[in-house]
Amino acid sequence: MPITTQQLIQWKQQGQTIVALTAWDYTTGRLLDAAGVDLILVGDSLAVMLGYETTIPLTLEEMLHHAKAVRRGVKRALLVFDLPFLTYQESFQQAMHSAGRALKEAGAQAVKIEGGHPAIIETVSRLVQAGIPVMGHIGLTPQSIHQLGLKQQGKTTTAGEKLIAEAIALEAAGAFSIVLEHIPSDLAAQISQKLTIPTIGIGAGSKCDGQVLVTADVLGLSERQPPFAKVYVNLSEAIARAVQDYASEVREHKFPTK
Rank of each mutant, 00 (worst) to 15 (best):
Q6D: 15
Q6W: 07
Q7Y: 08
Q10F: 05
K12D: 02
Q13C: 03
Q14D: 11
T17Y: 13
A20N: 14
W24D: 06
D25C: 13
T27Q: 04
L32G: 13
D33W: 09
A35R: 12
A35F: 12
V37I: 15
I40F: 02
I40P: 07
I40H: 08
S45P: 11
L46M: 02
M49Y: 13
L50E: 08
Y52A: 04
Y52L: 00
P57N: 14
L58C: 03
T59C: 04
T59Y: 14
L60E: 08
E61N: 09
A67S: 15
A67I: 06
A69Q: 09
R71K: 11
K75Q: 15
K75T: 15
K75F: 02
L79Q: 04
P84F: 12
Y88T: 09
A95K: 09
A102L: 07
A110M: 11
V111R: 03
K112M: 10
G115W: 03
G115V: 02
A119V: 05
I120M: 12
I121R: 11
T123H: 06
V124A: 13
S125C: 01
L127T: 13
A130S: 13
I132H: 05
P133K: 09
V134S: 11
H137D: 02
I138G: 00
L140T: 10
T141M: 01
P142Y: 06
P142Q: 04
Q143T: 11
H146Q: 09
L150M: 11
L150A: 14
K151A: 05
Q152H: 06
G154N: 13
T157Y: 12
T158G: 00
T158M: 09
A159N: 07
G160P: 15
I164E: 14
A169T: 03
A173Q: 06
A173M: 05
G174A: 04
G174S: 07
A175N: 06
A175M: 05
S177C: 14
L180A: 05
E181F: 06
E181G: 15
H182L: 04
I183N: 01
I183T: 02
D186A: 04
L187A: 01
A188E: 08
Q193T: 10
Q193I: 00
L195F: 05
L195G: 13
I197S: 11
I202H: 02
S206D: 14
S206H: 13
K207E: 04
C208P: 07
C208A: 05
C208N: 10
Q211C: 00
L213C: 11
V214D: 06
T215N: 04
E223Q: 13
R224M: 11
F228M: 00
K230M: 00
A238G: 01
I239E: 02
A240L: 14
D245W: 03
D245S: 05
D245P: 01
S248I: 00
V250E: 11
V250M: 01
R251F: 00
E252A: 12
K254I: 00
F255Q: 04
F255S: 10
F255V: 03
K258A: 12
